[in-house]
């Protein structure tokens, strides 16, 4: 084929002020209102524009050179996913207020609710056996930060749809999978970054800054963020209106948070609640974090047993590796599901 032929344009320089061809004979008034301004009006208009297009004339005289565009190669998809990911980061760092406000809730939980409950909880134990309840809550609150940030990032797709930007992405010559993957990794990165700020507060609630612990927590946080962003994207594919976001918060996100054992130990629960915690994917994300924290604090055995009781299935203690594997697998399933949903066409 010859790309060139299409672009072998005339070299005419066309002024921005070209008048309309006089459409009407001079015999009578003109039926169409002359909305097209005269040359002079146009030049005045242009002069008033904050950015003058006048210097554009010489560019227009030379037609744009054709460029090769994306062609369904893996490299193009990676490039597309990368820019979608970068957009999430740009938007995250540009909106400092959001970074700050999304810290308010976890901080209230950790330092207000946590401190309040701490005095009550320690009173219920014999002297000498004490633990800062906030230490217990810490992994849960980190999980909560990840949960809300990840869902919020993913559900921004609904806003993109509302404000049209989604269409700009959907019509691009790249696989939908690349777009969804970029969005998912972007949301996960943002949620992990937000969780960093919470992890920095570890020392205030007697969680040691041990490098091993911190690295473990960061890794687990990132995996959790990936799962939750994927869940959020699946939901976003279903939500057609921004107003429905409240429904999702009330009926999906808050239950996921409360049932995860982020705020209470998994042990000694009534059966109905115990079963619900077991079907909440967030439980399998918070539990490994809590186990990691308790490995690094010196809590009396009786308390550690009571508070850091691990997730069990029918009495069998799940290995941390299996829990993380479940989180990763579910994340991939959700991601695949999201790709399918965004590849559909009406």
């Amino acid at each position: 084929m010859d790309d060139q032929s299409v672009y072998s344009a005339s070299k005419d320089t066309v002024g921005a002020s070209d008048p309309l061809p006089a459409a009407v004979a001079a015999t009578g008034p003109i039926a169409e209102p002359r909305t097209q301004p005269t040359n002079q009006e146009v030049s005045e208009r242009i002069a008033h524009q904050d950015s003058s297009p006048q210097h554009s004339h010489h560019h227009l005289s030379a037609p744009l050179a054709p460029v090769r565009v994306a062609g369904g190669r893996l490299r193009d998809d990676v490039r597309a996913a990368t820019i979608v990911w970068r957009r999430e980061l740009i938007r995250f760092f540009r909106n400092r207020l959001r970074i700050f406000t999304s810290l308010a809730q976890p901080i209230l939980f950790l330092f207000v609710l946590g401190t309040g409950l701490s005095s009550m909880v320690s009173a219920s134990f014999a002297k000498g056996h004490s633990i800062d309840f906030r230490t217990f809550m810490f992994p849960g609150v980190v999980g909560m930060t990840v949960l809300f940030t990840a869902i919020f990032s993913a559900v921004s797709i609904v806003w993109d749809r509302e404000f049209g930007f989604l269409r700009e992405m959907l019509v691009a010559p790249v696989r939908r999978g690349a777009l969804v993957a970029g969005k998912c990794l972007g949301g996960a990165t943002v949620a992990t970054l937000q969780a960093f700020i919470m992890l920095a507060l570890a020392g205030l609630v007697h969680v040691p800054y041990s490098p091993v612990l911190m690295l473990t927590l960061v890794g687990e946080t990132a995996l959790t963020a990936f799962l939750l962003t994927a869940v959020g994207i699946v939901m976003a594919a279903r939500i057609s209106q921004v107003e429905s976001f409240q429904v999702v918060m009330q009926f999906v996100v808050l239950p996921m948070f409360f049932l995860s054992g982020a705020l209470f130990p998994l042990q000694g629960l009534p059966t109905w609640l115990a079963s619900l915690t077991k079907i909440d994917p967030v439980s399998y994300a918070v539990d490994p974090m809590r186990r990691a924290v308790f490995e690094h604090v010196s809590a009396p055995a009786v308390l550690a047993h009571r508070f850091a009781a691990p997730m069990t299935w029918n009495g069998w203690v799940l290995p941390v590796g299996l829990e993380l594997g479940l989180v990763a697998a579910l994340g991939l399933v959700m991601l695949a599901f999201a790709v399918v949903q965004f590849s559909r066409q009406d």
């Binding site: 460029v67 090769r68 565009v69 994306a70 062609g71 193009d76 490039r79 597309a80 990368t82 820019i83 979608v84 957009r87 740009i90 938007r91 540009r94 909106n95 993109d160 404000f163 049209g164 930007f165 989604l166 269409r167 700009e168 992405m169 691009a172 010559p173 790249v174």
Partner: peptide
């Protein structure tokens, strides 16, 4: 498109760069 499909929170240049990356320019 009939209704705008720009990202309001990006700059003009960032919007175009996004497009260039997506289209593999």
């Amino acid at each position: 498109f009939q209704d705008t499909t720009l990202d309001d929170y990006l700059t003009a240049e960032e919007n175009l760069r996004f497009h260039a990356e997506l289209y593999g320019v």
